[in-house]
Amino acid sequence: MSAAETTPQRIAGRGAAPQRSLWHVILVRPETMTLVLLVLAVILASQLSPFFLDISYILRSFTLSAEFAIVALVLTMVIIAGEIDLSPAANMALSTCLFAWAQASGVPMPIAIAIGLVAGLAMGALNAFMVIGLQLPSIIVTIGTLTLYRGLAQIIAGDKSIRMPEWFIGIDKVLVFGVPATVAIFVVVSLVLGLILAGTIFGRQIYQIGTNEVAARYAGIRTRRIKLILFLLMGLAAAIAGMLTASRLGSVRYDLGLGGELQMVLMAMLGGTYIFGGRGTILGTFLAAWLLVVVSTGMTVANLLPAIQLTVLGVLLIVAIIATNLIYSRAQR
């Protein structure tokens, strides 16, 4: 009943909205909130342990979640386009298990890597087929494929772990300009995706689709093709992230990246990506990834049990979406 009363007012109010000042536009943004939280977290953490003011310590801690962070960047784009993908962590496990299984049974490394990447792409394609081709809701589809991919990985790898060859291990220890390689990859991917999302027609079309898919289609945007690209990109990113994880851990088990979907969604949400699509930035997810690393490293330094960290992550996720929704609804008025 209240909807009927308030709607005309709201329309009138929106038309009469005054031009907002620049500082208002910059300050009332989720990314600003993320940045403030990041600074606060660093200050708090450095009270806990002076190591936090040592950039190389933070960089080393970042290698632990860099793989998830890379996938979270692509996930951000998927969520902006109005879809969601909960399967990438399982995708990481299955594509990496296939890759590890292939190379353990004597396939040359380049072909094994290709197998892993193709598997990741294929999994992204299956998601895309169900969501775009058959028009099923991505939420439930990716819950299904999450279970399926993880289960297939379990069938392939059993409960054994597959060793990686010595030379393949340790990409997180390789330094590029003093930065661990996985972190460097994350930074580069952030830059590339950030430029694509903010500065290209393709990027703007992703926002369009998330804001109003029907309108976007009438405006001549190839919504299905763009979503297909995003889901394929998701699969590819997951496969690469899986291999980076394998290189860091030195062995592959079916439970690689277990529960990673929480961290990925959390990074996107903390970075101010709007869960209903159409809003969000790569910058936000980039900052949120660092925030999450500082928070979880801080908790480890403070000797909190991993289980408590799980609780904190769960609370953070809920608080993040509530805050983001509030900021966006404030900005709309």
Binding site: E261, L262, I275, F276, L305, L313, I318
Partner: peptide, 26 residues
């Protein structure tokens, strides 16, 4: 959380899935 904050149930329950599991350990 779902009804008062108008949040999608999938994300809320993904959060509480981990939250409650963590509480179980605690």
């Amino acid at each position: 959380l779902v009804t008062f904050f108008r949040l999608p149930s999938i994300i809320v329950t993904l959060g509480t899935l981990n939250l409650y599991r963590g509480l179980t350990f605690i």
